[in-house]
Simulated assay, not measured.
Amino acid sequence: MKKKLFFSGLIAMFVLSAIGHYAHWDNTVQFVVSALAIIFVAGFLGKATESVAHYAGQRLGGFLNATFGNAAELIIAIFLIKEQQFNMVKASLTGAIIGNLLLVLGLSILLGGLKYKEQRFNKRLADHNSTLMIISVIGLFVPAVFVASEKFTIEKDRFLSLAVAGILIVAYILWLVFSMITHKDILTDEVMNADHGEEPAWSKGKSVLYLLLATVMVAFVSEWLVHTLGAFSAKFGLSELFIGAFVIAIVGNAAEHSAAVILAMKNKIGAAVEIAIGSSLQIALFVAPMLILISAMFGHTMDIIFRPIELTAIGVSVFIAKSVSQDGQTNWYEGVLLIMVYVVLGIAFYLV
């Protein structure tokens, strides 16, 4: 019954979003309908990924969920880049990072902790994730400081952005080799890999098909949503920073929200952490650098220089997430702390 209602809502919202876009409805109505459609489509994406994860294993499944869960943010960002809305792209990347580290991880730890007094996951994996999070901050912080203090020319700025982007992508690829191939055995989480006797939602072939279908649907709805952003933000007096960092990020993170929280409530906190922190690492070390390269292909290179408030938000999020996850165990109160930091940042961004 629940599945039928979900799929009915998914189809209805997708169709309404398409009609609203092509019939040129009021921009505010289009924005609301498209945002709801993205949430449904992202939920569909999360369910398909979770089903694929049953066949691929939870470690690889967490990576797949983070990857396809980030599809919404990546596709939205590409359309924004085509329109040269670079500030909103950077704001959405900032929002995706802090949203995963604070909101997604916080909700997972809180709701999982209310059901289980204490949840544990692989401490070595937590240590490596913490180190990578710090590297991602360094990769974003250094260019901003050097360009601002040394007053780089546009050519130097562009070269530094492309160079750092390439280095971060290589670092991320090598991390995948390290964690999934050469040191896979020591980073395995037995609880994370346990299926607790659960059956996948669909067969292997249908799961892969639905995963591809959901990704295509995300691409369409993302484009429709992007076309409404300018008019929506102007009508309600919202800054590009707030729209990008919180509105787009929350909508785009719907897949991670649903999948990570569900897994945490099944006592699979390792998989939930893998989705939340893994998704943030992927945004910082792969998606953001890839967008730099993609923008260069469009002929207008976006630099990797984030604003001080964006860097502050990312740095604060990494610090608290590292503090909470580094011991390899969680409880509900730690989840509350993460969510509180997210609320504080949300209020600050809203007032900008």
Rank of each mutant, 00 (worst) to 15 (best):
F236K: 04
F68V: 15
V41K: 03
S317K: 13
H54L: 01
I167E: 00
L110N: 04
S8K: 04
E199Y: 13
T153K: 03
I269T: 10
K3V: 10
F141Q: 04
W224R: 13
G106M: 03
L293K: 06
I38G: 03
N27H: 15
A284I: 02
I173C: 07
S108R: 11
R59S: 11
F7D: 11
I186C: 01
F14R: 04
A284S: 10
R59C: 01
L132I: 06
L10S: 02
K47A: 09
K184H: 14
I314E: 06
L311Q: 09
F242S: 02
F68H: 08
S258G: 05
I248D: 00
M265C: 01
H21I: 00
M1E: 10
N87G: 13
A37W: 13
F242R: 08
A214L: 05
P289C: 03
A96D: 07
N27W: 13
E198A: 01
V341N: 02
G139A: 05
K206L: 06
F121T: 05
V177R: 12
K206D: 05
A234H: 05
W332V: 00
F232I: 08
K4M: 13
H21L: 00
I339R: 11
L229N: 03
E240Q: 10
F44Y: 13
F306Y: 08
A194M: 12
M265R: 09
F232L: 07
A272T: 01
A284Q: 15
F79E: 01
L102G: 02
G197I: 08
L345R: 14
G9R: 07
M133A: 07
A126E: 06
L93F: 12
K47V: 04
A260T: 07
W332I: 01
K3E: 14
